[in-house]
Design a protein around this nucleic acid. Structure first.
Length: 258
DNA sequence: ATGGCTGCTTTGAGCAGA
């Protein structure tokens, strides 16, 4: 099973690119973030024609997440679109059980800057997520937590660690959240394998950041022990950041042996 | 050097992203 995550930064703008990518990569499950689209406008017919069933939780302008499931994979059950017990107007969560695997798709708040209210919201959100993930892991031995985490877990995930030290996406409280999630038993699938140095998943649109590889690795696929044991590969598709009208994020993909 | 892109929106300057 191939599980992927991609922050598309507007599904409306990115749909042609998404269609091409689905055709070339053929993931079984694709988790999307930043669809920026209300549910009534979701392009479910186009995706169905491309062989994907869609589940989504969107809103106008901001946020929005979706799960795409390839035809031939068992249908999604036990759909959830929020962190239980955490009141939130923002659409940042979608989870479902698909073919015996629990998939949780997160669009973690950005946080803006460490002195902002949005940073406080990010940490509150993440702490609510921690307790939910603990429950979900107890219920679902085969669990994947994917998405745009807006956290670069270590200095090696940052193009210039000194420039970013203490800044939002890299601050110690955010990194502590990431470590808390690993301490629940989740594995960072990217780090299960040897990876090229300076592999990132996001590059700013400005200042030629992509050609200079001034990026961060903030998009992740975490796996429960049972899934990690069967994981055979994880890579970031840097090619998807190239060309006309790219998202500022590249997709991350894992392979799980049956 | 506090900008620099991109996408969105009560269509056009301001917000948000990261």
């Amino acid at each position: 099973m191939k599980i992927a995550t991609w922050n598309v930064n507007s599904l409306n703008v990115r749909l042609p690119r998404l269609m091409d990518w689905l055709a070339s990569e053929g993931p079984d499950i694709l988790c999307l973030q930043e669809t920026k689209m209300e549910d009534a406008k979701f392009p479910r017919h186009e995706l169905a024609a491309a062989g994907y069933a869609a589940h989504y939780a969107g809103q106008p302008t901001y946020n929005g997440v979706a799960l795409l499931v390839r035809d031939g994979i068992a249908g999604a059950t036990d759909l959830v679109t929020s962190i239980p017990g955490f009141a939130d107007e923002q659409k940042r969560v979608i989870a479902a059980t698909i073919a015996g695997t629990r998939i949780i798709d997160f669009y973690v708040p950005n946080g803006q800057s460490v002195d902002s209210d949005k940073y406080r919201y990010k940490l509150d959100w993440c702490r609510a997520a921690t307790s939910w993930l603990r429950d979900e892991l107890a219920r679902h031995p085969a669990l994947a937590v994917t998405g745009d985490f807006n956290i670069a877990p270590e200095d090696r995930d940052v193009h210039d660690p000194d420039l970013w030290r203490g800044q939002v996406l890299c601050s110690e409280p955010e990194r502590a959240v990431f470590r808390d999630w690993l301490a629940l038993g989740l594995k960072d699938s990217f780090r299960l394998f040897a990876q090229p140095e300076k592999t990132f998943s996001w590059w700013d649109y400005r200042q030629l950041a992509f050609p200079k590889n001034h990026g961060l690795r903030i998009d992740h696929i975490l796996l429960s022990p049972a899934l990690a044991a069967k994981c055979t590969a994880c890579r970031i598709d840097r090619n998807a950041r190239k060309g006309e009208k790219p998202s500022d994020h590249a997709p991350v993909m894992t392979e799980i042996a049956q």
